[in-house]
Amino acid sequence: MARGLSREDKQGLTLIGLPFGYALIMLAAPLAMVVTFSFWTQNYLDIDRTLTLENYRAVFSQPIYQTLLWRSLRISLIVTVVTVVLAFPIAYYLSFHVKKNKALWLFLITVPFWTSYLLRVFLWKVILGYNGVLNTALLKAGIIEEPLTFILYNANAVVLTLAHAWAPFAILPIFVALEKIDRSLLEAAEDLGDGPFRRFWRVTFPLAIPGVVAATLIVLIPTVGDFITPKLVGGTDGLMVANMIQIQFGKANNAPLGAALAVTSMVVVAIISVGIYLVGRKIGGRVAR
């Protein structure tokens, strides 16, 4: 290694310096604060700054926190599976069957983002409510006798709302992975005797795995920590860990416990994500290069 920095190195450092500093201040500093907080204790209006593991002990011993964490993971895993499974055919259709105006289709997929996330969640409330659009329609059509109640204020509603909200984030990476597949590979598979079904499982799907893994991670990671959707449509049975964190920082006035919950769920999500990435790399094999 040469001593000192080359001209190019200096240029590079100058260029990334500012955004790096920004990221450090806006991301790393709050994170460091949350981690530090999680080792402190709330003493009514004061913070006791002696380092302690008491908050983590509470997180791991009191059943409510574990229940919430498990529920969050379960819900977001279901959301991820539903979203990716539904996104794949859309991405496939877009990539293989839309010949003209692909850009327009992609643009249309982003239409839900034109309104705010909060508004979209509220709209689901309108659709799924006791006197909501869905129930009224089904009642009028004579399909049901009384309004369905299992569709709002529970985990089902959370899954439905989140799966809808995150669909574009799953469609896009899968679409990109499918677009990257050299079409002559599919012809080669056909030429070598494969029908459409075998060809899909032997060529298309393995080559789309990087996109599926990306979609999985993109949906899974943020949904674990979502708190607006469970709060608005989740009822009591749909509450997730993020709601508890919010309560600890707010009403319960126990920021250190909230911080410990946040750090714990962050670590759990990180472990799961790394796991998914590694499994994806193994299945995707030599593709992910």
């Binding site: 050299d182 995707g284 593709v287």
Partner: peptide, 13 residues
């Protein structure tokens, strides 16, 4: 028939 493609179409995975 079997084809040798211009791009060779070797399965990358």
């Amino acid at each position: 028939t079997n084809m040798v493609f211009q791009s060779y179409a070797i399965f990358p995975h």
